[in-house]
């Protein structure tokens, strides 16, 4: 078994496309299930989503899987572009008249173009959310509680949710020092009381919603929602061919099961991107 066979032969390159592609389909399911929490309205939903985001950033198994996902995306993209360049070279002179629609679907012929658009989407998507979560400035999740104050007046107080359940809630007062955005300290900086949650929920709402938690008016939300929806349509076409194609590449073809695989692929290609797109549309129009 030489190295060139596993990496360079046309069929082996396709195996890699199939393996990484199917893994990324699994990733889509996981990501979608997490995103569905954005339908969960109110303060409870906000808290659930931010706790989920914290979990996704700190769980070791998730961390390992996330690196596998980054590598899969990179490998799928680089290998795919390499294949596309080779394919372009295999036909230097095009036909004057080519009725390709008579024998194949347009999605199957445009996988590289669809994939490139998806790659651009992933890059912007990661800058907008993943990058902000990992490297950006995101305020911690605070919530207001009304309580009786002096002279019978009602007083509004802010609290942080913390990761450490034994010491929560932590009041938002001057003595609390927020260090590294996540760790909360009271008075003496040596005493750490817990970790707050980054308010990713508000970032998402502010990105796709007309206004962020009823505050600033987001004038470009319609554009974000439109581009996101278009990207999901592109993803849908990519999956319509890609899902079943991966099975064919791996040789998983059988008179009894191939029709089922194709139907599942078609269902997957429509339901998953449509549900993804429904989330920003819901946030925008609610």
């Amino acid at each position: 078994m030489s190295k060139s066979v596993i990496l360079k032969s046309s069929i082996a390159k396709k195996y890699w496309m199939a393996f990484t592609g199917l893994f990324l389909c699994l990733f889509l399911v996981g990501h979608l299930l997490g995103n569905l929490q954005l339908f969960y309205a109110g303060e409870e939903g906000r808290r659930a989503f931010n706790e989920y985001a914290y979990f996704m950033q700190h769980n070791l198994l998730i961390k390992v899987m996330s690196y596998v996902t980054y590598l899969s995306i990179l490998f799928h993209a680089i290998d795919g572009l390499l294949l596309a360049f080779q394919n372009k070279k295999a036909r230097p002179i095009q036909y004057a008249m080519n009725k390709a629609s008579a024998n194949s679907s347009s999605a199957s012929r445009q996988m590289a173009l669809l994939g490139s658009i998806i790659l651009i989407f992933i890059a912007t998507h990661m800058v907008n959310f993943w990058g902000k979560m990992h490297f950006g400035e995101i305020p911690l999740h605070t919530y207001n509680v009304s309580m009786p104050g002096q002279m019978g007046q009602v007083q509004e107080s802010s609290f942080y949710y913390t990761h450490d359940f034994s010491v929560q809630p932590v009041p938002v007062v001057k003595e609390i020092v927020v260090k590294n955005e996540l760790e909360l300290y009271i008075k003496n900086p040596e005493i750490k009381v817990g970790e707050g949650y980054k308010d990713l929920h508000s970032v998402v709402m502010g990105f796709f919603g007309k206004s962020a938690n009823g505050n600033d008016v987001n004038e470009l939300a319609w554009l974000a929602v439109l581009l996101y929806t278009i990207s999901m349509a592109v993803l849908s076409f990519h999956l319509m061919h890609g899902f079943a194609s991966a099975f064919q590449t791996l040789g998983l073809r059988h008179p009894r099961y191939t029709a089922i695989i194709k139907n599942i692929g078609m269902g997957f290609a429509i339901i998953v991107p449509a549900t993804f797109a429904a989330i920003p549309l819901y946030i925008f129009f609610k």
């Binding site: 360079k8 046309s10 069929i11 396709k14 295999a90 390709a100 679907s105 199957s108």
Partner: peptide
Amino acid sequence: MVRTMDEEGFGNCTNTGA
């Protein structure tokens, strides 16, 4: 046979079915 196919400059299969 696959190695020779690649060396001859044929493209890669994308399962279009054409």
